[in-house]
Design a binder for these strands. Sequence first.
DNA 1: ACAATAAATTTGGTGAACCAAATAAAATTG
DNA 2: CAATTTTATTTGGTTCACCAAATTTATTGT
Lengths: 220, 220
Amino acid sequence: MQHFAYHSEENYLKTLYKLEDKKVKKVNNTALSKALELNPATVLEAVRKMSEKKLVTVLADKTIQLTDKGRKKALQIVRRHRLWEVFLVDKLNYKWDEVHHIAEQLEHIEADSLTERLEAFLGNPTVDPHGDPIPDESGKLKRIKTQPLSEAPWNKKLTIVALGNSSDEFLKYLNKIGLSIGATVEVAEVEDFDKSITILHKKSSITLSNEAANTLLVAL
Amino acid sequence: MQHFAYHSEENYLKTLYKLEDKKVKKVNNTALSKALELNPATVLEAVRKMSEKKLVTVLADKTIQLTDKGRKKALQIVRRHRLWEVFLVDKLNYKWDEVHHIAEQLEHIEADSLTERLEAFLGNPTVDPHGDPIPDESGKLKRIKTQPLSEAPWNKKLTIVALGNSSDEFLKYLNKIGLSIGATVEVAEVEDFDKSITILHKKSSITLSNEAANTLLVAL
DNA sequence: ACAATAAATTTGGTGAACCAAATAAAATTG
DNA sequence: CAATTTTATTTGGTTCACCAAATTTATTGT
Ligand SMILES: [Mn+2]
Ligand SMILES: [Mn+2]
Ligand SMILES: [Mn+2]
Ligand SMILES: [Mn+2]
C-alpha cells in the first residue's frame, strides 16, 4: 500500500479538458506540455498510458483528444474542484482569489459519496465563485450565455456572471477595483482610440482596458 | 513539479504518535512496520530519513521515538484528521463508521489557513465523532478523564464519551446495538462468570461482553 | 526542392516509496 | 552456553513520475 496519492492522470485529463473548453484547435504534445509545465518526454509517456486506457485518442496528425470516457473523468475533477471552491468561499469565508490552489488538492480526494454530499450541503450551486458552471453528477454542464463586457450595449444595467480567465492576477485586480461576480455595471463610454471603456458601478466610475473588458463576461 | 503528493512521512509520524498514545512501550522497527503494514526494509529507510530530519530518535536499544518536533507534526495531522471527521459527520451527515478513510485523505491537504478556518466553521469542537480529543493549533490536547464502562459504578447514570478503539468492526457493532458517543447508560448487572455486563439504555437492556465494556469509556 | 526550424520520439537518468530475499546481529530458550 | 528464533540490516529490484539531451521526423519559408 502506497502512502502517496497519484494525481497526475487526473491533472492531465483536467488540463486536456480545459484546453478543449478554451477551444484550442490542435492540442499536440507541445501544447499539452506547455499547459502542464512539464517536459514533452514526460507528457508523451503519460499520453501513451492514457491512450492504452482509452482515455485519450491520438489522431493521425498527433492531435491529442479526450475520449468520452476521458472527458467524463475530466469533468468529474472539474466538478469536484468547483464544488470545493464554493465550499471554501461560502463556508470558510475565503476570498475568490485564495481558493484555487487549495481546490487543486481537494479535487483529488476519492470518495464516491463525498462530492454528492458536498453538493447537497452547499445547496446545489450551479456556478463556482468565478462564475464557472459546475458539471452535474453525470458530467453535463449548462453553459451560461454570456457576452464580453467590451461588446455589451451601452447605458444598460448588466450583471457580471463569469470571467474569461480566472488567473490570480486578474482576480486580484478585480478585488482591487471592487468588481466581482454578481456586480451590476453599466457601460458609460467607449474610447475609440484604444477601446478602453468607462463603466458605472455603485455610483463610481471605473475605466477598464479593452483587455479587461473582454475578460469580464456579462449575462446575455 | 510533481502531480502527486507525498503523504508517507506524515503517515509514519501519525502512526508513531498513535503507538505512543496507546502506550506501546518499545516501538521498534518490527512494531512500526506491522502497524503500517509495510516491509521492514521500507520502514527502516524511512526512519533513517526522519532521523536525519530530527523528527525521530533511534535509541541505543533500537526503540524509535518521536522528537518534540516530530510529535508536533504528528499532532498537526491528528488535528486535521479529527476536524475533518467532525465536518463529515456534522455537516455532511456521514455516520461515524464511514468517515475514517475519507479523513485519511483529507488530513494531508496542505494549507496553513484551512485547518484554522475549518475549526472555526465547525464551532471549535473539542472532540471528534469517536470521542477522541482534537489537539489545538499548537498541538496541545486536553485528555478527557475517562473510565472503562466495565469498571464504572452500578446503578448510576453514565455518559459514553470515548472509545478505547475506533476500529470499523467496533463502530459497526455499536451502531447495531444503538450505542454512540453521548449515550446515557446505567450498569444493571455484572455476571461473575465472564464479567459480561447488562446495561440499561433508553429503556431497553443490552448485554455486553467484558471486552466491549472495557472498550466503552464513560466520563469520570 | 532544400535548408532551417519545430515537433515528436528515443535514450538514459533521477528520486521517492515500495518489496523480497539474503545476511548479520541480538535475544531467547532448552 | 549452544541452538533456535526473532529482529535488524543490506542488497538488489520495481514502479511511477519526472527530466535533459540526443535523434528522428515533420513542417515551413524561400
Ligand atoms: Mn480554480
Ligand atoms: Mn473556479
Ligand atoms: Mn479516524
Ligand atoms: Mn476519530
